[in-house]
Simulated assay, not measured.
Amino acid sequence: MENKLRFGVFGGGSWGTALVKMLSENQNKVGWYMRNDSAIRHILKEGHNPNYLSSVEFDVDQLNLSHNIDQIVEASDVLIFAIPSAFLDGELKNLHVNLKDKIIFSAIKGIVPESGLIVGEHFHNQYDIPFENIGVITGPCHAEEVALERLSYLTIACADANNAKLVAQGLKSDYIRTKISDDIIGTEYAAMLKNIYAIAAGIAHGLGYGDNFQSVLMSNAVREMKRFIDRVYKMKRNINNSAYLGDLLVTGYSTFSRNRLFGNMIGKGYTVKSAMMEMNMVAEGYYATKSAHLLMDKLEKKSKTPIINAVYQVLYKEKSPKKVFEKLTDKLD
């Protein structure tokens, strides 16, 4: 049954492509904004994204594609943003349509560098969107497995339970299970933090640490995640739920994880710049590491986040991954 709300997805990457695929299972029409005009022309002609998840075939009659962000905003009731956090503010500067009365969901796992805020807080502070009209879409769910229609799970978080249910209904299918949550701040911070820990797991792998150490690293990471989120926004939550622990594990261990791949390259001796150039993809955890470290420093809680601190030293202070992780091993239990 079609959801009566009109959905628009913003972002032409792998996760944006996966979201359009999921929505297409339930909607007669899905809005899709991407800035790459040649990719739009290719999709309209060939029925698939030439750059990301190219195996996914679309019925182009279901798609309202445009490189004009205003057009897709005007045509949509629910706006789902899947633009990398480092580029979100720049894209929004092209917007000339009022976002008032729109329901905005973030599928972005990162911090907006210009404001230092998670995406939901950025929309609330910069665009006066009430929190009840802001939500988060989190995993554990890799875009590549959505493309393969492997059973996956999403958590839809929003202060307004009805908005969460409507978006959950729009995304669910035979291969997508959805659940709702009211922990919008916690789930969004968890989605950001797990990328940092995935970089740590990748660095460890690149340095030659084995599965025994990785298990200790992930065990410490989930406890560190809990301390971080509780310090930023304390409420009753079970950190072992899928939106927190599950998303952390899949990002830390999966071969599909770009953040783990990025960390693995750093551990093997690549510079940050060379790793990013070779990947040709955005590792959200790189930007999140700086924001998370600065926030804990400001709150004078840096001693509570040794894994984040270690990744920060490697990525931003150009410290030796080998020496930094040797010190980190003494801080884990």
Rank of each mutant, 00 (worst) to 15 (best):
residue 25 E to W: 10
residue 60 V to M: 07
residue 114 E to C: 03
residue 205 H to G: 13
residue 54 S to M: 09
residue 225 M to I: 02
residue 59 D to S: 13
residue 5 L to N: 15
residue 14 S to V: 12
residue 74 E to C: 08
residue 286 Y to Q: 07
residue 315 L to G: 07
residue 71 Q to H: 14
residue 229 I to L: 06
residue 90 G to C: 01
residue 57 E to G: 13
residue 180 I to Q: 09
residue 43 I to P: 02
residue 304 K to L: 15
residue 233 Y to N: 12
residue 240 N to P: 12
residue 75 A to F: 10
residue 44 L to K: 15
residue 270 Y to I: 06
residue 30 V to N: 03
residue 135 G to Y: 00
residue 139 G to K: 02
residue 101 D to N: 15
residue 272 V to D: 04
residue 5 L to W: 11
residue 60 V to N: 09
residue 48 H to Y: 14
residue 65 L to S: 05
residue 125 N to Y: 11
residue 109 K to E: 00
residue 262 F to N: 01
residue 53 L to G: 05
residue 274 S to K: 14
residue 227 R to V: 12
residue 296 M to L: 07
residue 53 L to E: 05
residue 216 V to R: 09
residue 164 A to M: 03
residue 77 D to S: 09
residue 55 S to W: 07
residue 314 V to P: 00
residue 271 T to I: 08
residue 51 N to W: 11
residue 155 T to I: 07
residue 325 F to G: 06
residue 34 M to Y: 02
residue 58 F to I: 04
residue 42 H to K: 13
residue 167 V to R: 02
residue 162 N to F: 11
residue 172 K to R: 11
residue 107 A to Q: 00
residue 284 E to G: 01
residue 73 V to W: 06
residue 74 E to D: 10
residue 170 G to I: 10
residue 221 A to W: 05
residue 275 A to W: 03
residue 183 D to I: 13
residue 235 M to P: 15
residue 167 V to P: 00
residue 89 D to N: 02
residue 319 K to M: 11
residue 295 L to F: 05
residue 227 R to Y: 10
residue 30 V to S: 05
residue 173 S to H: 08
residue 139 G to C: 05
residue 276 M to D: 08
residue 333 D to Y: 15
residue 317 K to R: 14
residue 294 L to P: 00
residue 178 T to H: 08
residue 22 M to R: 01
residue 44 L to P: 12
residue 75 A to L: 10
residue 25 E to V: 11
residue 289 T to G: 00
residue 79 L to E: 01
residue 14 S to H: 08
residue 307 I to E: 01
residue 260 R to E: 07
residue 324 V to P: 05
residue 155 T to F: 04
residue 168 A to Q: 00
residue 163 N to E: 08
residue 90 G to L: 01
residue 177 R to M: 09
residue 133 N to D: 09
residue 270 Y to G: 03
residue 32 W to S: 03
residue 25 E to P: 14
residue 288 A to F: 02
residue 312 Y to A: 06
residue 3 N to A: 12
residue 154 L to Q: 09
residue 288 A to Y: 02
residue 5 L to V: 06
residue 294 L to I: 11
residue 211 D to Q: 14
residue 111 I to S: 00
residue 319 K to F: 07
residue 267 G to M: 10
residue 66 S to Y: 07
residue 213 F to N: 03
